[in-house]
Amino acid sequence: MASKRKIVAAVMFLLSLHLAILLAGFVAPYDPAAQNRDFPFAPPTRVRFVDAAGHLHARPFIYQCVARPDGIYEYEESRELRYPVHLFVVGPEYKLVGLWPSRVHLFGVEAPAQIFLAGTDNYGRDQFSRILYGGQISVAAGLLATGTSLLLGLLIGCVSGFYGKWLDESAMRLAELFLVLPWLYLLLAVRAFLPLHISPTQTFLLLVVVIGTIGWARPARLIRGIVLGAKNRKYVTASRSFGASDYYILRRHVLPHTYGILLTQAALLVPQYVIAEVTLSFFGLGLSEPMPSWGNLLANLQQYNVLVSYWWMFLPALALVLVSFGYLNVANAFHERLQSGST
């Protein structure tokens, strides 16, 4: 079955992305806030197999990056010593998933050399680590906001479709309002009315709630349609004649029909909401520095000299694109399966 294999491949890709982000502390070699004032805007470190003398090595290695004495922000490799890349090395302490303290990292090199897979930013912070940690914020915001949207949509859609009448009428008019507005305008407007100077945790939760609330309308409409179709089935009437409560009917006979749509909607919404969080942080309306949200990482590009001179500053965008790509693939696969299932 081709569509099943497609789903498995798409989900596996997505899972591995999420796993890397979830275990950021382990995968990242350095602390995302650790600054190296001697290495601002260092380019990505080249991982080599062939040394300066032309010998091939089985274990990949790097050369230490040193600042060129004559230039600013210019670097070269010091070819004197090879620093092999080791797996499971002991490095700076971190908390795995924010809970278990550990010092073991997936890979690393011996000091004084440092390995910057995605270069460094203006404070010399390792971008690879920052991208992974930033993903924790951006992707978590996207996931939680999606949960909020779907929960709201499920609630309103169910009530609207199940009880109908004026409730339905007013809910659907309101949904139309939310659907017709350009989402970014709405997002900025709502954000404008909310406090700016609050703690990072509060800001994060605020972002989640605002982004999630703005997107309730589409899932609500879709779920309402399904509930409308399901509640007029004869088996629902039969269930009523057995004395079933509305709650029982919703739970047993109506909600199971919405799972497919919920899953597809989730796969579509998560990347949109990740982008929404990134956009807000980019504008400075979300989490602020030194929190490494992807929006904050990308904000560096707003300086034209950074944009042109240091191409690796684009790499956070690559992470964003990969996540979007993964989710869209999953959404497509789900959609195809839903279509083929219904016919």
């Binding site: 089935r233 004869k234 088996y235 009437t237 039969a238 004649s241 057995f242 004395g243 047993r252 006979h253």
Partner: peptide
């Protein structure tokens, strides 16, 4: 429970 119904379209009447 004392009053029960059996519907026509049994396919639609059974989940």
């Amino acid at each position: 429970p004392k009053i029960q119904m059996v519907f026509q379209d049994s396919a639609g009447a059974l989940n």
